[in-house]
């Protein structure tokens, strides 16, 4: 037997390629202070029934409400092991809602500046192959 297999090569995840898609954001912790003025907005947010609606629309995300002194912070936890904290001090409920949307829709990856010519990112090889000077018509026509 001369053909061998190369070990330590693993399959690569393609989330959503099959019929399953795992939402990247798994958990959001909402931390507020019951006393501080900067938490006024988030207290209003929590007292209103907004979170109830959000939670029922995003059943795949776990929400946790924590009381802790200091500025209010909302933190998203993602499947790639990263988390994203956003400080929501002095924000009104509408702004907080927007920040929550950002956390829920994020992939959890770090923010990158993609270059201009980076329109296609793929695990697959180019279907057209790589041009070779040795193949095809060798005498160029003018």
């Amino acid at each position: 037997m001369v053909v061998k297999g190369i070990t330590n090569r693993f399959s690569i995840a393609r989330n959503g390629y099959g019929e399953s898609f795992i939402h990247p954001c798994r958990k959001i912790i909402i931390q507020y202070c019951n006393w501080g003025g900067s938490s006024q907005g988030i207290r209003d947010f929590l007292v209103s029934e907004r979170l109830n609606g959000i939670a029922s629309r995003h059943k795949q995300i776990e929400f946790e409400v924590i009381k802790k002194s200091g500025h209010p912070v909302i933190t998203g936890f993602y499947n790639n092991g990263r988390n994203k904290p956003i400080c929501v001090r002095n924000m009104d409920p509408i702004e907080i809602n927007k920040k929550l949307e950002i956390l829920m829709n994020s992939s959890g990856d770090i923010l990158r500046r993609w270059t201009k010519n980076d329109n296609v990112r793929s695990l697959n090889k180019s279907v057209r192959g790589i041009w070779s000077p040795f193949h095809g018509n060798t005498t160029p026509s003018l």
Partner: peptide, 19 residues
């Protein structure tokens, strides 16, 4: 934290009230 103060109007099963 003590279980007091802010009473939340949350009843969803995926929201965990710490209190």
């Amino acid at each position: 934290m003590r279980s007091q103060l802010l009473k939340l109007a949350i009843s969803r099963s995926n929201v965990w009230r710490y209190q």
